[in-house]
Design a protein around this nucleic acid. Structure first.
Length: 258
DNA sequence: ATGGTAGGTACCCTA
């Protein structure tokens, strides 16, 4: 995060979002650059970070209501925080979830690779949680790095990546189960044809990411039905892949009606 | 079949 303040300022200049969700902040809460971010207009912040790895944060122009960091699978690994926020629109209070799903390592076999097992367990734990929470509560959004590209059009080559972690059948099924359990709408796909390529991540390990274009849609914005109906635009900020210093992920934005 | 880059930390781990 501390390395990305210029990128955050560029995002703010381009889109002026009311709420921003960050993943992989890699900073402990007491070292989070709160005043610099407040100076950008985001004085309301809910952070859940640790040293060196993971970390999530919600930044807002409007007060955050009852922020709640959550730990999963018995680990203190700072991958989820949520809060209420006044939308200043017809939805009134909405609940915003900022989520960072484990990447899962390289081998797509939970018996051989504990990181992949953790990824599946993490998603299943969310599935159970959303099932238990039911449909009650305010309209809600879930956004973040889910580290899974579910559709064929979410990857540069389904044939080449179907055995690669992020696009294997086992992960995709688990993610779709979670989506169903939370009655979530994949808002990005609402605004795109199912077969239209859409990527939010391009590896660092390409000499020219644009030329190779070996991207994946790992970052998602989901919404409850009522919240999804208030969305009037989705934007993948593809050009941000060239910002300096570059991130391998680009921001995705949704705009609400009104 | 392999190796390619980046960030944070402490000479390796995770992505």
């Amino acid at each position: 995060m501390r390395k990305r303040l210029d990128g955050l300022a560029a995002l703010v200049a381009a889109e002026r979002p009311d709420v921003i969700c960050l993943q992989e902040t890699k900073v402990q809460d007491h070292l989070f650059p709160a005043s610099e971010i407040a100076d950008l207009g985001y004085s309301h912040q809910a952070v859940h970070g640790m040293k060196g790895y993971n970390g999530v944060a919600i930044l807002s122009r409007h007060p955050l209501i009852a922020p709640e960091p959550r730990d999963w699978c018995g680990r203190d690994d700072c991958r989820h925080i949520f809060a209420g926020v006044d939308s200043n629109g017809p939805l009134q209070e909405i609940e915003v979830h900022c989520l960072y799903v484990p990447a899962g390592g390289d081998i797509a076999d939970p018996l051989k690779n504990p990181k992949f097992a953790h990824k599946l367990d993490f998603i299943d734990a969310h599935t159970h949680w959303w099932t238990a929470r039911g449909a009650a509560g305010p309209p809600r959004f879930l956004m973040g790095d889910l580290n899974i590209a579910p559709l064929q059009s979410d990857v540069w080559s389904h044939a080449r990546l179907k055995n690669t972690v992020t696009h294997t059948e086992i992960e995709i099924q688990r993610l779709l189960n979670m989506q169903k359990a939370g009655r979530w709408v994949d808002v990005m796909r609402w605004f795109l044809a199912d077969d239209e390529e859409a990527f939010t991540w391009w590896s660092y390990r390409a000499a020219d990411w644009r030329e190779a274009n070996k991207g994946r849609r790992l970052d998602h914005i989901w919404a409850s039905r009522q919240a999804a109906e208030q969305v009037d635009a989705v934007h993948i900020m593809r050009d941000a892949r060239d910002w300096a210093p570059a991130s391998d992920h680009v921001p995705v934005t949704v705009r609400l009606k009104g």
